[in-house]
Every structure is written in C-alpha cells, then in structure tokens.
Nucleic acid binder design. Sequence first.
DNA 1: TCTTGACCTTCCTATCGTGGTAAGGCTCAT
DNA 2: ATGAGCCTTACCACGATAGGAAGGTCAAGA
Lengths: 145, 145
Amino acid sequence: MNKDHRNSVNASLTDYCSIGEASKRSGISAKMIRYYESTGLIKDVKRTQSNYRYYSEQDVRQLQFLKSARDLGFSSEQMVQLVTLWNDSSRSNVEVKKLALVHVEEIDKRMLELQSMRNALMEMVKQCHGDGKPECPILDGIAKR
Amino acid sequence: MNKDHRNSVNASLTDYCSIGEASKRSGISAKMIRYYESTGLIKDVKRTQSNYRYYSEQDVRQLQFLKSARDLGFSSEQMVQLVTLWNDSSRSNVEVKKLALVHVEEIDKRMLELQSMRNALMEMVKQCHGDGKPECPILDGIAKR
DNA sequence: TCTTGACCTTCCTATCGTGGTAAGGCTCAT
DNA sequence: ATGAGCCTTACCACGATAGGAAGGTCAAGA
C-alpha cells in the first residue's frame, strides 16, 4: 500500500508528508487545509525548496483533531479555541467543558427551531387531504402566517 | 399611525406601496425583496416614473407568503415551487403535500445530524470532571476520533 | 421656493464553508 | 525526454443576508 510514494516529500523523512497525503490522512480536503491556513486556524506550515507544504505527524494529528471538531459541528472560531486548549498542556478542563456546553446549547437551539418548523409543517400536512384537488390547507396555512 | 405617508406611492392609489412599506408589511427586508427579484423568485415589479418599485396588495400578500415559507425553512428553490402552486388555481394538493413532506424529511435529516453530534458531545462532557485539571476526556475524545 | 431628511436607486463588498477551474511549476517512473 | 500526477496561486461560485457609498426623489415645513 501507499504505492504513490510521490506523496512522501522525501524518502528519508517518512514522518513528513505533502498536503495531498495530509488530506487523505485527516479527511480534510487540501482546499480546506489551505483555507484553514489562510484564515489562521492553523499556522503556516513548513515548505520544501520547491514551495510545497509539508506536514509532520503532529501536524496531521492536529488536522485530524480539527476534522473531528468540525464533524461535531464546532465553528471555525470554536475550533481555534479548542485546538489552542488541546495544545496547552496547562489547560483547565473547565474551559473545555464550558466550550463544549456552549456548543451543545447552540445545537439545542437549532434543534428547537427545526422542531418548531417541523411541528408547524406536520400540522398543515395532517390537514391536507392530498386528494388531487386544489384546496390545500398547507398553502392556506403558509399564506395566513 | 403610519405617519410616514411618504411610503405611499401615490395618495390616490392607496393599495400600492413602496418597497419600504412592503418590507414592513411582509417582514422581508427591502434588501431581500430586491434580491428575490434579481434571482427571479419574484417577478419584476412595476415602477413609478422615477423608477421606484411599487407593490400591489397582492404583491404584498405574496411577500408575506414567502416570508412565512422562509420561516418554515424552505429553500429559495422550494419557495419558487410553492409560490407557483399558490398562484395556480388548478394545482393539485398532492404536489404541495409532496413538497412539504420532502422538506420535513430534510428537517429530520438535519435533526438527526444534530442529535448525533449532541450525543457524542454529551458522552464526552459526562466523562469530563471539570475539576480544573488539564486531563480532559473531551479533548481526548475529539483527538481519538 | 428652498431646504431638509427620509426615502429610493444601483453597484460593490463581506460573511462562512466549500467546491471548482485555470495556468503554471515540480517530481518521478518509464 | 515525456507524461502522469502531484503541487502552487489566484480567481469565481453557491445561498442568504447585511452593510455601505453615491446619487436621485419626494413631501413637509420654513
């Protein structure tokens, strides 16, 4: 496996890899890795002589961390804070917990919004016969606000 | 009330109003009304001699309908279909119901995503003592994917 | 009649996260 | 040496919304 050794920046530096390989290993597209770099979410990474970015094992772990945080719905701003805490060995888990709970509250808020949309929609759907006639409690329901 | 009679386009045409008044009555910002027009979601509206847009009662009702659809989470594309059905007196309520149910499914999908994020987060939060130490099952949980 | 202020117009910019594409450079295997 | 497949930067796009600048219009009040 890993036949495509072009992805290793240098055969003697097997713990460094190109952006393509870092992308595969982290699940973040190369595009997004560059974007994260441009916005400061991740630091500018080292470059080869030919200006190629290359990533250490730790860099890749950080990308994996970010992927996972993104999958959990954290915003870029929150990811900055999370990764800062992650890299700070003298952090307090109180901070982390607070961050997580703030995010849970955001999720709850979004779920409530969705739930109320769903309830309103289903209420109207229930009243709609769906018998092919033009009469439609759904359209009426939307129209009457 | 409605002291600002400048919002009526013409004193003798009280059933027509400017974009500002249409905005107030529909709850859609003037900005968005122009945007909807530019994207074709609503038709180009009539203009006064001085190039001001003016809206009939029916136009305003359509804006209210769109506001309501937007609040229910429909996308612009879905709103096009909804408003087309609304304006079609020979529509079939089957179409409308289908549209509504597709949207409900989208909502369900988003809720499931949020729910799974929430579950994962709360699982980690539960394990975090939050005692001020650096040890943190939340960060560990994110890191280990 | 003139001024004033609140409206209106168009056009441009930004957001957020992501994808695409083009033009060009680098590296490696054949 | 050639070509495949990476890499680079620099653009444009999306969807829905907001902000601002520069300039035109309108009605009220002095």
